Lab assay of single mutants.
Amino acid sequence: MGMPNRKYADGEVVMGRWPGSVLYYEVQVTSYDDASHLYTVKYKDGTELALKESDIRLQS
């Protein structure tokens, strides 16, 4: 078993793309699913969504 190939840690605050949009919002990573390679993130309004790594970026 190798290390999970994840870029962002639980609790890390990053920018997540809103689905169907080009806009990124501040989100907190809450979990990562090794099987689906999706991150569960929480937006400031409390919305929780699963995002692909390509829809997440570090805060500038």
Rank of each mutant, 00 (worst) to 15 (best):
Y43V: 07
Q59I: 14
E48A: 08
Y8A: 02
S31W: 07
R17A: 04
R6W: 03
M15G: 03
S21R: 07
Q59F: 15
S54Q: 11
V29C: 01
H37D: 11
N5C: 14
T30M: 15
K44F: 10
L49P: 00
E48W: 07
L38P: 00
G20F: 07
V14W: 01
V29M: 01
N5Y: 11
R17I: 06
A35P: 04
L58W: 10
T40P: 00
D33R: 02
T30V: 15
L58C: 12
S31Q: 07
Y32Q: 00
L38R: 08
P4E: 12
G11F: 06
K42Q: 10
D10C: 06
Y43S: 10
D34Y: 11
D45Q: 03
V41Y: 01
G46Y: 03
I56E: 00
V27L: 08
D34I: 09
G46P: 01
Y32V: 01
G16W: 04
D33F: 02
M1N: 15
Q28W: 09
Y8I: 03
Y32A: 00
V13N: 07
V29G: 00
Y24K: 01
I56L: 12
Q28P: 00
N5S: 14
L23K: 11
A9K: 12
M15N: 04
Y32L: 01
T47P: 05
D10A: 06
V27P: 00
K52E: 11
R57C: 12
A50W: 14
D33S: 08
L51Q: 02
Q28F: 08
M3G: 15
G46K: 04
D10G: 03
A35S: 11
S54D: 12
G16C: 13
N5R: 04
L23S: 09
S21D: 06
G2W: 07
E48K: 10
D45L: 02
S36P: 01
Q28Y: 10
M1H: 14
E48L: 14
V41T: 02
D10R: 04
M15Y: 13
K7G: 03
G20P: 09
A9N: 09
T30A: 09
K42P: 00
G16F: 09
H37I: 03
V14M: 02
G16E: 00
M3L: 13
K7L: 12
T40N: 08
Y43G: 08
K44S: 11
E12S: 10
V13M: 13
S36R: 11
Y39V: 02
A9C: 09
K7W: 04
I56M: 11
D10T: 09
Y43F: 13
K42Y: 07
L23H: 12
G20D: 07
S60P: 13
R57E: 09
G16N: 01
W18Y: 08
K7S: 06
Q28R: 13
Y24I: 02
Y25C: 12
G16L: 10
